[in-house]
Simulated assay, not measured.
Amino acid sequence: MTKKHFEEKNGPKSTVSKVVKGTSPSKIRGKFFKIKVYIGIAISLLVVAILASLFLFSPNAKRESTEAISSVAKKENTSQEATDASKASEIKKKKEEEIQKLKEQLASLDSKVAESEKLVDKLKEETAVPKLDIEALRNNDLSSLKGTWRTASGKEFVINDSINESSEIYAIGYRDGQKVESTYELKVPKGQERPKSDTASFGIWPKGLMAGGAVLYAIPRGIVKSAGQYTDQSNTAEDRLVAGQSPSMFTEPENFYYRVKPDTSKLEEEEKHLAQLQAEREAIKTSLESKEKKNTN
């Protein structure tokens, strides 16, 4: 039987036999060497794992591990505390800066309010309308006459600050459409007690002349003047002056002089400004007190 007939009848020889048969001894030794190396590495890893487990589960290892974890946690806590402290410091600094700014604003407003109050007081004094003081007039104190008095037709009596010293009245009238200016003197009976009455009266003459005299009546608001059959026809809600030579002058409203009230627009404007400043100051003061209270808590 030939080889060919044998393989056809029994099949080819096994691959292992072929490999072993066809492999050189050096290659076989190399394969065994690699196997040994792999086995050695596996054993080494197993030993390391065993030793590591023994180390981790030993009391010292646990303590050292706990201490290490505690140390890390402590460092983290310290770092967090430092961060929190820094943030708190920044917040506190910002609040203090806000408080300081409010204090500066309040101080500035205090100064502005004080200046505005002084100006308002000055303007009030300048625009104050004195009330006729009949008792003072009867005692020759003419200061309550001070000011400008005007009729409906535009005639004026201008009585200045020196009325007590000079007893002079500056008058502006109109004749034939022309402006006429003159000065009158008040004749105050000194050393004589005036009759008790609700009005005061004076003799009035053109300055430097003895003729052309008349009587000037000062009538306070609310008083109705009458003389015989003649009754006051003026606006009794206002202080007024009237001068003439006949009691009939009380029945002629155009003869009465009313006090000219000064322009108060500047005063009103400054009072509004003062009110705004006071409102701002109150708002700043309230905000400052609130922030200071919160900052101390």
Rank of each mutant, 00 (worst) to 15 (best):
E268F: 04
E168Y: 10
N139E: 10
S58L: 06
E168K: 10
A52S: 12
V20T: 08
A200M: 02
N164R: 05
R259S: 06
Y258G: 03
A214V: 03
G173W: 09
K9L: 09
K92E: 11
K93N: 10
M1S: 14
N77I: 13
L54C: 14
P253M: 06
S17G: 15
K62N: 13
V180S: 00
N60K: 13
V158M: 14
A211S: 10
V19S: 04
T151N: 01
S248R: 00
I169V: 14
Y170A: 15
L132Q: 04
E8V: 06
R281I: 07
A114V: 03
L277D: 02
E115S: 09
E90K: 13
G22A: 14
K272Y: 05
D121H: 02
S153A: 10
Q245K: 15
M1R: 06
L137E: 02
G208W: 01
D121V: 05
E126H: 02
E193Y: 06
A218D: 03
F202G: 09
A243Q: 12
G40Y: 14
G213E: 11
L109A: 03
A243N: 10
N255G: 05
E156W: 07
K95W: 06
L186F: 04
E156C: 06
G30P: 00
E252P: 00
A52W: 10
Y257M: 07
P206F: 04
T264Q: 08
T236E: 11
T264Y: 00
K18M: 13
T286E: 03
P206G: 07
Y257Q: 05
S201D: 13
I41K: 01
E125R: 04
F157V: 01
I159P: 13
K9N: 06
S144M: 06
K87E: 12
M1G: 10
E76G: 04
K179P: 04
A85M: 01
Y184G: 11
S26T: 07
P130M: 08
A114L: 05
T151Y: 00
M210W: 00
E280G: 03
I91H: 11
E125N: 08
Q105C: 05
V113E: 00
Q229Y: 09
K146Q: 11
K207S: 11
S44Q: 06
E104A: 12
K87R: 08
K94C: 05
S53V: 11
I172S: 08
E270S: 03
N295V: 01
N297Y: 13
